[in-house]
Computed example of a mutant assay.
Amino acid sequence: MNNITTFNFSLGREERNQLNAHNSFVLWFTGLSGSGKSTLANMVEKLLFEQKVRTFVLDGDSLRKGLNKDLNFSAKEREENLRVAAEVSKLLVSSGAVVLASFISPQQANRDMVKKIIGKDDFVEIFVNTSLETCEERDVKGLYKKARAREIKNFTGIDSPYEQPVNPDIEINTEKENLEEAANRILKVLQKKLELK
């Protein structure tokens, strides 16, 4: 690490934000598998796109198919998956993009690590609060069925805990409001954060 020298590039985040005419930051969607995180992130991205906001969606599946394909689901390697996700998100924020990151991120300590890497001013935590029963009923990927049959170990919500965020910036209860309403509510909350000073 002693031989690493930071090069000072002539263009930085501030110039890119000015060009884009909006601020850049991370929306971190957390919740159980099947809670609706990625669907909601996709809806919010479409609304932002309509406002000409530069965005990028990042989720666990896309990261594990490429950058993190060598990681399994042990606690240590899940933490590494999230660390990489946070670092990639931080780079994308520097590029001027609003990042919509969708990760189960079940442990409070892991989410605190992510927030520290990204920076608290650039981190908006969105808790997609959907009950285990509802997620298991949906079971869109068939993962809960496999976890119940013990074909998958350390599955969040079944044999691995999910620690709910204590004080998320935004909480969405998908059993009380539909995703379209939730996406519009998130967009309203973000309007001031998008505006350049």
Rank of each mutant, 00 (worst) to 15 (best):
S105P: 08
S74Y: 07
S89I: 01
G119D: 01
F155E: 10
N129T: 00
G96V: 02
K69H: 14
R150W: 12
A149H: 11
I158C: 11
E151G: 02
E77F: 07
D159E: 08
A149C: 11
L67T: 11
Y162G: 07
K76C: 06
E79Q: 13
E136M: 03
M113E: 04
L71S: 10
V99Y: 04
Q164W: 06
K146I: 11
S74C: 05
V124I: 15
G157T: 05
V166E: 13
T130Q: 05
L71Y: 09
K116N: 09
V93L: 10
K153Y: 10
K116C: 01
K76T: 14
R78Y: 01
A75K: 02
R111T: 06
A147C: 05
G119F: 03
K90N: 11
Y144Q: 07
T156D: 06
E79A: 14
Y144L: 07
V99H: 07
G142I: 06
N68H: 03
A101H: 08
E163L: 04
N129M: 00
F127L: 10
P165C: 14
F127I: 10
N81S: 10
K116M: 12
R150M: 12
D70R: 15
S160E: 08
G96C: 08
K141H: 10
C135W: 06
K146E: 06
S131M: 09
K146Q: 15
Q108N: 13
S105E: 00
V166Y: 01
D70Y: 15
A101M: 08
E80K: 14
D122A: 08
I118W: 02
L143E: 10
L143V: 01
V114L: 02
A75W: 05
V98C: 01
K146C: 10
S105L: 02
K145H: 08
T134D: 02
L91V: 07
D139S: 06
A86V: 04
V88G: 03
A97N: 12
G142L: 03
R138K: 10
V166S: 05
I117C: 00
S160T: 01
S102N: 14
N81R: 10
G119Y: 04
M113A: 00
D139L: 03
D112G: 14
S102D: 12
I118Y: 02
A101K: 13
D122I: 00
K76N: 11
D159N: 13
K115N: 14
P161S: 15
R148A: 05
E77M: 12
N68E: 13
A109W: 01
S160W: 07
F155L: 14
K115V: 09
D70T: 15
I152N: 10
E136N: 02
L100D: 15
T130R: 08
F123R: 00
T130G: 11
R83K: 13
L82H: 09
E77L: 13
K120E: 08
P165N: 05
Y144G: 06
E77T: 15
K90P: 00
V98R: 06
D112C: 15
E79C: 07
L132S: 09
K69A: 14
V114A: 11
F127H: 00
G142Y: 12
R148H: 14
D139C: 00
I104M: 09
E137S: 12
A86I: 04
P165W: 04
E79R: 14
I152E: 04
A149G: 01
N110F: 01
Y144E: 11
K141Q: 01
